[in-house]
Computed example of a mutant assay.
Amino acid sequence: MTETFDRRRHPVRADLAAIDYEGRATASCFAEGEVFQVIADQLPIRPEPRPDRPIDTEALSGEWVTVYEQTPEGWAWGQLDTDGYVGWFSSDDLGPVKPATHRVRALRTYRYPVADLKFPPLGLLSIGSLVTVIGETETRGLAYALLSDGSAVVAKHLVPLDAVEDDWVAVAEELIGTPYRWGGRSSLGLDCSALVQLAAQTGGHGLPRDSDMQEAEAGEAVPHDDPATLKRGDLLFWKGHVGIVAGENRLLHANGYTMTVAYEPLDKAIDRIAATEWGAITKARRLPEL
């Protein structure tokens, strides 16, 4: 029997596949892959090497990707190390690997050419971005982290890689008002499952990217027939959508209804969503306490 591979999670095509799939997948050739680091602020990942296609997701600055093909047109096909997502992205936005020491905890932070906020920024890093700190300095009483690429960011906007938030839902709440963006995975714009993934990551939970993956794998299933039994941090799933229980009768989600990250009364959200293509709640899941 031929094994079926989800294109979002497995670097397998008819003409090319990762070497790890040799013997499992049918492909014209197999490649070892080469690891690179994302040097853009955000790197759109698409299902095809076409700029007019909607994005599936984004890689963040400092994350690693394993590349199995690069084209003369400047496209690369590979897999994101953070959550295993596979797709096409710009090879111009990749650089050599530098092991990260910290990640961005502020919703976003400017990257400066020198340790001085008066200078024009080089870029804007989102929460979840990874950086390599090689030193620290102070300018006019403000501490800056010096990064391996020669730039600087405000030091208090970073946390060590092993830092864990006691209440990751509070991090999701910090993103209220962020624009909804299909496939977005940054504090400049994100979708429902990216909100869950980014916020849960700060609490030490490594979740898959899309809502159907999270519904199948995140934590453990809990009953959802009585909303009163749900706890803060429980995840509620509909077909193609996920939201976070933020409190009694309160749902927090990135959604196309308000086009933002927003609170919504849970009972009203259930009724509203049931009247749309998403239908009824399909599952509730609870992440483990760490």
Score class of each variant (00 low, 15 high):
S211V: 01
V171E: 00
A199M: 03
E217W: 02
T202R: 11
L175D: 08
S186M: 04
G203L: 10
L190Y: 13
H205I: 06
E165T: 03
E174M: 11
A200I: 06
A172R: 07
D212E: 15
L207A: 12
Q214F: 07
S193C: 12
G183W: 05
L198P: 02
V196Q: 05
S186T: 07
Q201F: 14
W168S: 00
E215V: 03
A216V: 05
E174H: 14
A170F: 07
G184K: 06
A200E: 09
D191F: 14
P179Y: 11
G204Q: 10
E215G: 12
D166W: 01
Q197R: 12
S186E: 01
E173T: 03
A199D: 02
D212M: 04
G203S: 14
P208R: 13
T202M: 14
G183C: 10
M213L: 12
G204H: 11
W168V: 06
Y180F: 09
Q214C: 05
S187Q: 12
R209H: 14
M213I: 00
L175V: 03
R181K: 09
A200S: 13
Y180L: 11
E217M: 15
G206Q: 15
G203M: 10
G183F: 07
D210V: 00
L188P: 05
M213V: 11
G206T: 14
A216S: 13
G204T: 07
Q214H: 00
C192R: 02
W182L: 13
G189S: 01
D191W: 03
W168P: 01
R185V: 00
R209L: 11
S211C: 10
D210P: 01
D166T: 12
A170P: 04
A200M: 05
L188W: 13
I176H: 08
W168M: 02
L195I: 00
S187A: 14
G184M: 09
E165K: 12
P208H: 06
L198Y: 06
G183A: 08
E215A: 13
T178E: 00
C192N: 13
L190D: 07
H205A: 07
G177L: 10
G206R: 15
T178A: 10
E173N: 08
E217V: 00
H205S: 07
D167A: 09
E215N: 10
A199V: 07
G184E: 08
S186R: 11
V169D: 12
S187D: 04
A194D: 04
S193F: 13
A216L: 15
P208V: 01
L198W: 06
A172S: 05
V169H: 06
